[in-house]
Simulated assay, not measured.
Amino acid sequence: MNPKLYSLLLFIVLFSCTYKDQFPEKKSERISVDNTSVTQKDSWNYGPFEGLFTFVTQFDAQDSAFDLQVFKAKYDQFYTNKNETICDSTELPAWIEINGLLLELTADAKYAKELEEIARNKTTEDYIQPFVFTRSVDHIYVNLFKPAEINYQHSLGGDVTIRQETTYPESGSVRLHFGMTERQYIELYIRIPEWAEGTSVIVKNVKYFTQPGSYCVIAKKWKQGDVVEIELPIENYPNR
């Protein structure tokens, strides 16, 4: 092979690998809700979140300047110094988008925790709703405890519906109801809040291990009518 051609091909391969590393695949993706992302707006004032939101726009544009590790580090720095009044900010949808993208990219429960804090501000409900469930193929993440429903086509065919019923945080009871056209294998990830030591997750009298600050994993074949029973120790809910 011509040495120059070989060098060019090698450069293309290395560049492609580097580019892929800069833009990692999302570990799970939000449930699409039209016109809720602030990135879909023609104009938006990002206020105190301007610096962090740059990473969101870079990712959306597949800008080579995007760096996930720097994004996470800048987020941690911002989070350490943020004050309680931030959740009253009129630019709060931008903060939701920042946490939502990091949740999609990392599947780290700490970003879902912040989304839960934001959800106390009722004016943000439309922006929060897409992150109640996130999905990667047949891996379903339950990030927030809110009435919601996910409908999708299983990778092996057939319709799947998972419906969440709860009045959280008024009650610690959460129920996930499965609707299926046929029995299918799904990996379910249920976030256990940091304060929720002793949370119970039961399916057909089988109790699953839970660890606060992480996800309880249930990997099994599900069928029509299956129910996940979640009981959170709501008496320990912060500021109750």
Rank of each mutant, 00 (worst) to 15 (best):
E182Y: 10
E231R: 15
A107Q: 01
P193I: 08
K20Q: 11
E194M: 08
Y215P: 00
H177F: 08
V228P: 09
T167Y: 12
G172Y: 08
E114S: 04
Q153D: 11
W95F: 15
Q211P: 10
Q40L: 04
G100W: 00
Y189C: 04
N121C: 15
P93S: 05
F78Q: 07
Y127C: 00
L8S: 10
T181N: 10
L102I: 02
L101T: 00
K27H: 05
Y127Q: 02
F66T: 02
N121R: 14
G213W: 11
N81I: 10
A107E: 01
N35H: 03
V137L: 09
Y111H: 09
L188S: 04
I190R: 07
D21A: 13
E50R: 06
S64D: 12
G198D: 05
F55G: 07
G172R: 10
R240V: 13
H154V: 04
L176M: 07
S28W: 09
T123D: 12
K207D: 11
Y46W: 06
T161C: 09
T167N: 11
V70M: 13
E125S: 15
K26E: 03
I118P: 00
P169H: 07
I96K: 00
E116F: 06
P169Y: 09
G100R: 00
A65I: 03
S43A: 04
L52W: 01
K41Q: 07
Y152P: 02
F133D: 00
F15P: 00
Y127A: 01
V203R: 03
I230L: 15
P238D: 06
W95M: 06
L232T: 11
M180G: 03
Y189W: 08
I202L: 09
F11D: 13
T166A: 12
K146S: 14
E187R: 08
E125M: 14
R191Q: 09
K72P: 05
G172D: 08
P93N: 07
A94Y: 00
A73C: 08
W95T: 02
A112P: 05
W222I: 01
H177S: 07
A73M: 13
I118M: 10
K207L: 12
G198Q: 06
T161Q: 13
N143W: 13
V228I: 15
T161M: 13
V174S: 06
N83W: 13
T36H: 00
